[in-house]
Design a protein around this nucleic acid. Structure first.
Length: 857
RNA sequence: GCGGGCGUGGCGGAAUGGUAGACGCCAGGGACUUAAAAUCCCUUGAUCUUUGAUCGUGUGGGUUCGAGUCCCACCGUCCGCACCA
C-alpha cells in the first residue's frame, strides 16, 4: 500500500507527485504571505514554535495541522491571516550534541532547522515563511538584549545572590530536572548548592495584574487558568510580631489570625536566623538543622516525612494572653514562604496537630460549628468554617469577622498588620551556558555592573568555542569576555551568563508581527496583529511559557513599548498522540538484593519491529508473540514512537492531516494507528474518484442533497471555529456518502464542488489537484468559503418520535409546523402506540412541536 | 492531602433535558476477478421465545411526562500542585 517507487495507477490521486507540485505553486505565488497593509479583518493564528531537535515528531504534526486548518479556513472566510513559523533554537540539547559528537551547537541547530523546515513543507502548511525566525540568530537575540536593557532601565531587572545546583565534575550549573537523586544526570557526581550572583526579572511586581488578568481570558481552558492562579499563589493573612524571651522580635505569617487564641507554639524554619542563632550556641540545635536539610523533596518523601522539632529554649509572648509559647525549630516550616516562621495552631492546622500530638503540646479548639459544641474534642485539625470559641473577645464572631478584628487590633497596637503573600518568585534568568542569549552587561572594577550601550548590540556569541573541557565555554574563552568598560574605558569583564531560553519564547509572537532591523518590533504592526487570535500548543506549557509570555507582554506595555497587555486572546491545548506498546517481560528472582522479590525485566519493541495478525502482535525477526500494552504517550524508552516522515512518503500529506483531525476530539489524546491512517488514505482516493464525476452540464435539482450541502457548510464552519475538527470531519464523511449515492443532477455537481471547498483546508493538495481538474479559477487556497443559503437550512418535513411513558414506540414523518392536536391524533392512530397502550387511558399528553409526542397512560 | 478532567459497542468517539451509539476503525458475509490488490454491497450494543420484545451510557439514589445530559453520594481512572502556614 505504498504510492512511492511505483508508477501511479490511472484514476488514483498520486500524492507523491501532486504534493510537491502544489507546495511549489503556493511558494511561487506567495499565497500565505500576510499583508500588513491589508484592509481585510485580521486573524493571527499561532502554534507554539518548535525546538529544532532534528526531526518533526507526530505531536508537531497534530499541533500544526490544527492551526493550519484554522488558518486556511479563516483565509477562505475573508480574513487577512498571519500564520508564521519559527524556531526556539537555543538550549541544552545543542550543547549536549557538541559534547557528544564534537559538532558546533550553531551548526547542529541550523542543520536541524533546515531538515525540519523541509519536513514541515512536505506537510503543506499554509505558513508565511517570509517571517521565519530563529532565536539563536543575532538578528533575533540582539533585539532581545535591547529589550532586556529597557527592562533594566525601568527597574524590572536586578542582580541577587542565589543558590544553584552545581555539578563539580562537569563544572556546570544544573537545572532542577537535571538533578536525579541528588546527582548530576550526566556525571553522576553529588550536586552541591552554590551561591552565585544572578540576574532576575521582577515578575512579582506584576503578580496582581497577572492574577487578575486571568479573569479576562475567558477563551483559555479553565484548567490552565487555575494552574496559573495556583502558581501565582496569592494568600491573604497577617504578619504578626511575637516578643521573644531574649528580647528580640519574631515575625510570623498566618492566613488564620482568627485562630490566634489556639496558638500553642511558634515554629521557625531550619535556616531561619532564630534557628541559626540557636545553632551557634547549642551544637544539638546545629545537628538538628543538618538533619532537616537531609530531608528529600520528592512528593513521596514529603508526604511521609515525620514532623520533627527542636526546642530552642526560647519562648514567645502571646500578644493577647501573654502566655509563654515554646519556640521550636521545625522541619516542616519553609524559609522561602512568608517570614519563615509560623504560629502553631494544632486545633486547626493538620501539620500543627501532628506536631503537637507528637510533642505533647496543648490542642485547643477555637473554631466550632456553634457555641454548644465548643468543647467537642478534636481527633484531627478542623479546617472548616464556624464561629470563634475559647477566644476571649472573639467569641461568637465568624471567621471572617475575627480575622478583621485581630488585624485591626494588631495594627492599632503596633504588633502586626494584614499582609498578602505570594507564592510566585522573581524569575531567575541567568544560565551558566554557552548556547543562549548573552546578557548584555559588563563588570567593571571601578564602575560596577554597566549595561552594554545599545549601539554596541548585538553582543554576539563567539564561534570559536570548544566543549572538550567541562564548564562554560564563554567563561574560558581566550578573548571574548575581555571588553572595555563602556563608562570608563578601562579593561573590564563581559557577563558570561546567558538568558534562560524561556526569555526567547516570551516575545517571539511580537517579532512575527513585524521584523524591523533597527528595533525589536514596530509598535503599529503589533497594534494591528496582536493579540494572537488563536494560540495552540501543548499543556506542558500551561504555566511557565504562558506565564512568562504574559509577563513580558505586560512589562513591555508597562514601559510603554506596546499597547497590548494579554498576548493570547484564545488558547487551545491539544492532546498528545499516543500509541500502544509492545513488550516482552521475564521475571527473575532477585537474589542479589536478597529481597526475594521477583524483578521484572521488560524488553520493549518499536512498532516497526512487529506485525499484527488476528489482533495479536508478533516480532518480525523471530515470529515470537509479544504483549500489546496500554496506549500511552510516545516515548523513546517504551519505543512506541512513530516517525511521521515515512508515513508522508507512503500515504501522502493529506491522509496524515486527515487522520490527525479525525476521531479524537483535539483536546484529548489521539491513539496513532496505521489501520486508521489507511482508512484516511482510502477516503482520499474515494474523494478523488467523486471529484472526477463532476459534470457541470447535468441538469436537474435534488433538494434533499441541496439541504444537506448547506447544512454541512454551516455546521462545518461552526465546528472548525470551535476547533471541533473531529465533528467537521464526520459531517464531511456524511456529505460525501450522500453525494456518492445521489443520482446525477446539477445539485450533485454543486455538492461535489462544495465538498471540494470544504475539504480544502484539511486536504489542500488533493483539493488543488481536483480544483484544477474541474476548471476552478486560480488556486483553491485563494477561493472563498462557500456561502450558505439560509432558506435551505430549514426543513419542511420532520420526523416525530412517539413515546408512551417516555419509551419510544414509533416515529412518524410529517410536515413541519403541524399543530399539537394533529400530532396527538396521529400519535394515537399508530398501531404500535395502541399496542403499547394496551387499552389504558391516556392521562396526559406532552407535545414538543416538530420533535416528539409523549403519551402518559 | 488539595485542585481539575474523564468514565457511552471490540476500538476512537457522536448526541441545545426529547428517537443513545452519528461518523470512522476493526470484524464478519457477499459481488467483481483465473487469482490478488483495489472497488462496491450487506451485517455489526447485548439478550431472548427474533413480523417482535426486553435490557443498555462506571455504581447507588433523586428531580422530571422524559436523564448519557441536571442534583446528591460513591467507585474507577488520568492530569496538575503540594509540608505555601
Amino acid at each position: 500500500m505504498t504510492t512511492s517507487n511505483t508508477t501511479p495507477e490511472p484514476g488514483r490521486f498520486d500524492a507523491a507527485s501532486a504534493d510537491p507540485r502544489w507546495q511549489a505553486a503556493w511558494d511561487a505565488a506567495q499565497t500565505f504571505k500576510a499583508d500588513d497593509a491589508s484592509a481585510k479583518p485580521r486573524s493571527y493564528v499561532l502554534e507554539m514554535f518548535p525546538y529544532p531537535s532534528g526531526r518533526i515528531h507526530i505531536g508537531h504534526v497534530r499541533n500544526y495541522t490544527m492551526g493550519d486548518v484554522l488558518a486556511r479556513t479563516k483565509r477562505m472566510q475573508g480574513f487577512e491571516v498571519l500564520h508564521p513559523m519559527g524556531w526556539d533554537a537555543f538550549g541544552m540539547p545543542a550543547e549536549n550534541a557538541a559534547m557528544e559528537q564534537g559538532v558546533h551547537p550553531g551548526g547542529w541547530t541550523r542543520a536541524n532547522i533546515a531538515s525540519m523546515k523541509a519536513q514541515l513543507k512536505r506537510l503543506g502548511f499554509a505558513l508565511d515563511w517570509s517571517r521565519e525566525l530563529a532565536t539563536c540568530e543575532p538578528d533575533y537575540y540582539g533585539h532581545e538584549q535591547a529589550l532586556f536593557l529597557d527592562l533594566y532601565a525601568a527597574g524590572l531587572v536586578y542582580r541577587k545572590e542565589s543558590a544553584v545546583n552545581w555539578d563539580p565534575v562537569d563544572m556546570t550549573v544544573l537545572a532542577n530536572e537535571q538533578v536525579i537523586d541528588g546527582r548530576g544526570w550526566r556525571s553522576g557526581a553529588l550536586v552541591e548548592k552554590r551561591k552565585l550572583s544572578q540576574w532576575f526579572l521582577k515578575i512579582t511586581q506584576f503578580a496582581d495584574e497577572l492574577l487578575d488578568g486571568l479573569d479576562s481570558l475567558d477563551k483559555w481552558p479553565e484548567k490552565v487558568r487555575t494552574m496559573q492562579a495556583n502558581w501565582i499563589g496569592k494568600s491573604q493573612g497577617a504578619e504578626l510580631s511575637f516578643a521573644l524571651s531574649d528580647g528580640a522580635q519574631l515575625d510570623v505569617y498566618t492566613t488564620r489570625p482568627d485562630t490566634i487564641f489556639g496558638a500553642s507554639f511558634v515554629a521557625v524554619a531550619a535556616d531561619h536566623p532564630v534557628a541559626l542563632a540557636a545553632a551557634a550556641r547549642d551544637p544539638a540545635a546545629a545537628t538538628f538543622i543538618a538533619l532537616c536539610k537531609q530531608g528529600g523533596t520528592t512528593a513521596a518523601e514529603v508526604e511521609t516525612a515525620e514532623k520533627l522539632g527542636f526546642d530552642t529554649g526560647l519562648t514567645a509572648r502571646h500578644p493577647f494572653t501573654g502566655a509563654a509559647l515554646p519556640v521550636t525549630i521545625a522541619n516542616f516550616v519553609l524559609m522561602e514562604y512568608g517570614t519563615g516562621a509560623v504560629m502553631g495552631v494544632p486545633g486547626h492546622d493538620q501539620r500543627d496537630f501532628d506536631f503537637a500530638s507528637k510533642y505533647g503540646l496543648p490542642i485547643v479548639r477555637v473554631i466550632a460549628a456553634s457555641a454548644e459544641v465548643a468543647d467537642e474534642p478534636l481527633t484531627e485539625a478542623a479546617a472548616g468554617d464556624g464561629i470563634c470559641v475559647h477566644s476571649d473577645f472573639l467569641n461568637g464572631m465568624s471567621v471572617a469577622a475575627a480575622k478583621a478584628e485581630v488585624i485591626a487590633r494588631a495594627e492599632g497596637e503596633g504588633w502586626g498588620a494584614g499582609k498578602t503573600v505570594w507564592r510566585l518568585r522573581d524569575w531567575g534568568v541567568s544560565r551558566q551556558r554557552y548556547w543562549g542569549t548573552p546578557i548584555p552587561f559588563i563588570h567593571c572594577e571601578i564602575c560596577g555592573v554597566v549595561p552594554v550601550p545599545k549601539k554596541q548590540l548585538p553582543v554576539v556569541l563567539p564561534e570559536d568555542v570548544d566543549f572538550k573541557t567541562p564548564g562554560n565555554p564563554l567563561e574560558r574563552h581566550a578573548t571574548w569576555k575581555h571588553a572595555p568598560c563602556p563608562q570608563c574605558g578601562k579593561p573590564a569583564r563581559r557577563e558570561t551568563d546567558t538568558l534562560d531560553t524561556f526569555v526567547d519564547s516570551s516575545w517571539y509572537f511580537l517579532r512575527f508581527a513585524s521584523q524591523p532591523g533597527d528595533q525589536p518590533f514596530d509598535r503599529a504592526a503589533i497594534a494591528k496583529w496582536l493579540p494572537v487570535e488563536q494560540y495552540i500548543g501543548g499543556i506542558e506549557h500551561a504555566i511557565l511559557h504562558l506565564l512568562y509570555a504574559r509577563f513580558w507582554t505586560r512589562a513591555l506595555a508597562h514601559i510603554g513599548l506596546i499597547d497590548v497587555t494579554e498576548p493570547f486572546a484564545s488558547l487551545f491545548t491539544q492532546g498528545m498522540v499516543t500509541h500502544e506498546t509492545y513488550s516482552r517481560s521475564e521475571e527473575w528472582l532477585d537474589t542479589l538484593l536478597n529481597s526475594g522479590e521477583p524483578a521484572k525485566i521488560v524488553e520493549w519493541f518499536a512498532p516497526t519491529e512487529i506485525y499484527k495478525r488476528g489482533g495479536k502482535a508478533f516480532l518480525i525477526k523471530d515470529d515470537q508473540e509479544v504483549a500489546i500494552g496500554r496506549v500511552i504517550k510516545m516515548s523513546k524508552s517504551k519505543k512506541n514512537v512513530v516517525d511521521p516522515d515515512a508515513f508522508i512518503t507512503d500515504y501522502g500529506a493529506d491522509a496524515i492531516r486527515w487522520f490527525m483531525l479525525s476521531d479524537s476530539p483535539p483536546e484529548r489524546d489521539l491513539p496513532w494507528s496505521v489501520a486508521g491512517l489507511e482508512g484516511c488514505a482510502r477516503f482520499v482516493q474515494r474523494l478523488w474518484r467523486l471529484f472526477g464525476q463532476y459534470d457541470p452540464t447535468v441538469q436537474g435539482t435534488d433538494q434533499g442533497l441541496d439541504r444537506q450541502v448547506h447544512k454541512t457548510i454551516a455546521a462545518a464552519a461552526e465546528d472548525i471555529a470551535a476547533l471541533g475538527f473531529n465533528k467537521a470531519v464526520a459531517r464531511i464523511y456524511d456529505l460525501a456518502n450522500a453525494t456518492e449515492k445521489a443520482a446525477p443532477s446539477a445539485s450533485r455537481s454543486a455538492a461535489i464542488r462544495t465538498l471540494l471547498l470544504l475539504v480544502s483546508p484539511m486536504m489542500p493538495h488533493l483539493a488543488e489537484e481536483a480544483w484544477a481538474q474541474i476548471g476552478g479559477a486560480g488556486l483553491i487556497a485563494d477561493a472563498a468559503w462557500p456561502p450558505v443559503d439560509p432558506a435551505l437550512l430549514v426543513e419542511d418535513e420532520v420526523t416525530i418520535a412517539i413515546q408512551v411513558l417516555g419509551k419510544l414506540r414509533d416515529t412518524i414523518t410529517v410536515a413541519k409546523g403541524l399543530p399539537r392536536e394533529e400530532l396527538e391524533a396521529l400519535a394515537l392512530a399508530s398501531d404500535k402506540v395502541q399496542r403499547a397502550l394496551d387499552g389504558k387511558a391516556v392521562k396526559k399528553v406532552i407535545v414538543v412541536p416538530d420533535r416528539l409526542v409523549n403519551l402518559v397512560a
